[in-house]
Simulated scan of single mutants.
Amino acid sequence: MAGIGVACVVRSTEDHLYGPVVSFGLAGDATDLLDDVTFGIPPLTATDVSSMVRSIRAAPRLFGYHGAPVADVARLEDLVARVSVMADELPELRRLELYPVLVSDRECSVLTARVRLADSDRADALRRALPQ
């Protein structure tokens, strides 16, 4: 019953070295074949989330590419931020996949969610960062 919009994928995985890692991309060929995905290490700031959403090569599809409606990017960014908080605060969350997330001009709908939980083995509570 979801409306028409841009299909996205938001994932969180628990890496043994970095801790939680959140990823974002558009659903379909752009993500699967071209590896058009961004990654962030929680906790993510609003600037981090905004940068993740805008830095993929297919991002223009969210902003009215070729006359398409502009997607509600603020709601999408809110979803990515909430996944970041959940991944950071719940070390038992091994994997979360929201696929597809349908973003239209008025809403952001999660159509499918998959979650894997396990006992926590996270050793640190400090901020982790990807190597430069």
Results as ranks from 00 to 15, higher is better:
Asp119Trp: 03
Ala30Gly: 11
Val70Gly: 09
Val22Arg: 01
Leu96Ile: 11
Ala58Asp: 09
Ala46Val: 04
Pro91Phe: 01
Glu97Gln: 01
Ala2Asn: 08
Glu77Thr: 04
Arg122Gly: 12
Ser104Val: 08
Thr45Trp: 04
Leu126Cys: 07
Asp78Gly: 05
Val6Trp: 10
Glu92Asn: 09
Ala30Leu: 05
Leu96His: 06
Thr47Phe: 05
Asp36Leu: 00
Asp72Leu: 00
Val10Thr: 11
Ser84Trp: 09
Pro20Asp: 00
Ile4Gln: 11
Gly5Leu: 11
Ser120Gln: 11
Val6Ile: 12
Ser50Lys: 11
Thr47Ile: 02
Val110Tyr: 00
Leu130Ala: 05
Gly64Trp: 03
Gln132Leu: 06
Met1Ile: 13
Ser12Tyr: 03
Pro42Phe: 09
Ala27Arg: 15
Ala74Thr: 05
Ala58Gly: 10
Leu96Glu: 07
Arg116Asn: 08
Tyr99His: 07
Val85Met: 01
Gly25Trp: 08
Val85Cys: 04
Gly19Gln: 08
Asp35Ala: 14
Leu79Asp: 01
Ala118Ser: 14
Arg94Met: 10
Asp15Ala: 02
Tyr65Trp: 12
Asp121Thr: 15
Asp72Pro: 08
Asp119Ser: 13
Asp32Ala: 05
Leu117Met: 10
Asp78Phe: 09
Ala113Gln: 09
Arg11Glu: 14
Asp36Phe: 06
Asp35Met: 03
Ile41Asn: 10
Asp105Val: 06
Asp78Trp: 10
Gly19Lys: 14
Leu111Pro: 05
Ile56Leu: 00
Ala81Met: 13
Arg94Gly: 09
Val110Lys: 10
Thr45Lys: 08
Ala81Arg: 08
Asp105Met: 02
Ser84Ala: 03
Thr47Asp: 15
Arg122Ala: 12
Gly40Tyr: 12
Leu76Val: 01
Arg61Val: 03
His16Met: 14
Ala68Ile: 01
Val80His: 04
Ala74Phe: 02
Arg127Thr: 10
Thr13Tyr: 09
Arg127Ile: 14
Pro131Gln: 03
Leu117Arg: 06
Pro100Trp: 04
Leu130Tyr: 11
Pro20Ala: 06
Ala59Leu: 09
Leu102Ile: 15
Val9Cys: 06
Ala7Leu: 08
Met1Gln: 13
Arg61Ser: 12
Leu34Ser: 13
Asp124Gly: 11
Asp36Asn: 03
Leu111Glu: 01
Arg75Tyr: 06
Arg75Asn: 11
Leu117Ala: 15
Arg114Leu: 15
Glu92Met: 08
Leu44Asn: 00
Arg61Trp: 12
Ser23Asn: 07
Pro91Gln: 05
Val103Asn: 05
Thr45Phe: 04
Arg54Phe: 05
Glu89His: 13
Ser23Ile: 13
Ile41Ser: 09
Arg127Leu: 11
Thr13Lys: 13
Ser23His: 03
Arg75Pro: 01
Val49Ile: 02
Arg54Val: 09
Leu62Gly: 02
Arg106Trp: 03
Leu34Trp: 06
Glu14Met: 15
Thr38Ala: 00
Val37Glu: 00
Ser12Val: 06
Leu79Ala: 13
Asp105Gly: 14
Thr112Glu: 11
Tyr65Met: 07
Val80Ile: 13
Phe63Ile: 06
Leu62Ile: 04
Leu79Phe: 00
Leu96Asp: 13
Arg116Lys: 11
Ile41Tyr: 15
Ala81Cys: 02
Gln132His: 15
Val21Glu: 08
Leu26Asn: 05
Val110His: 07
Ser104Ala: 08
Thr38Pro: 10
His16Asn: 01
